[in-house]
Design a protein around this nucleic acid. Sequence first.
DNA 1: TGCAACTGTGCAGAGACTGCAAGATTTTTG
DNA 2: CAAAAATCTTGCAGTCTCTGCACAGTTGCA
Lengths: 218, 218
Amino acid sequence: MPSTDHVPAQALGLRARKKLETHRALTMAALRLVGERGLENVTAEDISAEAGVSPRTFFNYFATKEDAVLIAYPESEQRAEQSARRLLEAPPELGPMEAVLVMITEDVALIDENREEWLARFAIVDEHPALAARIVTGQLSGERLMIETIARRVGMDADADLYPALLHGVIGAAMKAAIKLWAHEGGRRPVAELIRASFDALAAGLPVPAATTTRGNS
Amino acid sequence: MPSTDHVPAQALGLRARKKLETHRALTMAALRLVGERGLENVTAEDISAEAGVSPRTFFNYFATKEDAVLIAYPESEQRAEQSARRLLEAPPELGPMEAVLVMITEDVALIDENREEWLARFAIVDEHPALAARIVTGQLSGERLMIETIARRVGMDADADLYPALLHGVIGAAMKAAIKLWAHEGGRRPVAELIRASFDALAAGLPVPAATTTRGNS
DNA sequence: TGCAACTGTGCAGAGACTGCAAGATTTTTG
DNA sequence: CAAAAATCTTGCAGTCTCTGCACAGTTGCA
């Protein structure tokens, strides 16, 4: 979202700017070191040193070592609320899936804009499946909030109805599969295109083989 | 699956039987303690003490503290391979989703058979979303292997085609949503029924609101 | 300028998890 | 059946993640 990239640096004030810089330095350091040595051969201390801050500061920015790799932008909590709001405000005539598509388009564009960074990130995620769950579905994106928002949009109960949780999970799966393919292709096609392909497959009821493939096939 | 519950205890030998007992003692201890105090207020040492083994032994059985709550049965690795085999051996005329349904039916039955235990487990998972991902989708079920198996069954490439990873993720989401509802209902309906409802919704292309709800509605 | 609000850092400490080697048990073998 | 092989349990030492706390340095603002 805009708050980091689109806002002119000067509008932020020195303090906020420094914070962004430190966050960035840490994620970049994490990305590089982990990319080279693997997650288990890099300590939080290594990353801190590489970024030029104390280990204690590292944990002021990230709750876990993994987060340094996964969280590309700060303010992830507010981000979840913004997303929820955007989902509710999407044109009422849109079905839930279309509304979600609208909601995520903005965020997904950032991936294409920083291709190298995200390719590095997903390369790491690919080698550590434990991270994959966390990045799309996990609490990073505010699972609970998102399910409730979906429920409200379609007028259902987040707990007593199957649909809201099902849709939320399915959307996460679609994004995960799309992004995995995006990375496998080296980021040649825009992410949004692949996500749309996933959503189309979903809307069509997951038709069997060749019809879904976005190219000819093997 | 059969290997633990269905095999007469005497056919296992003393050593194997003791191992099963210890595993069971640990998971039950973990389930109870964590259920009472919450995951963060229970240490691996607590669980070990409760189960009557040394802390070191705890980590001989589980790689992480969380696994003690999540892994209901041992041999999880072989289990993944068995599932893969079952998926390939399912009647060829079945579509992928039906084949998966057949594959998981057997495992899912165990949930209904041990309702209380699984309700306790899911109650914990519900409070710790980080666990949710791991239990269905994560490496616990051999993500990579499963995607490749799906790919083989439909004659596609696990990496270059969208479908296999998409189907795998979507199935995981369907199971997760179904089980969440199952737990919310206190296990009144058989899990298989709810999973079937999820799969039906998927096959129908995630039709919007009221049609999916498995009851009337709110 | 001077105070209030942050941010960075060191320190101490709890807890997760691992490798190693000794001791106890079970299974296998001859 | 007894000795050897295979396994399992455990204690120990040690690394690493992550947290609370207190203090020092900066930045924002009146």
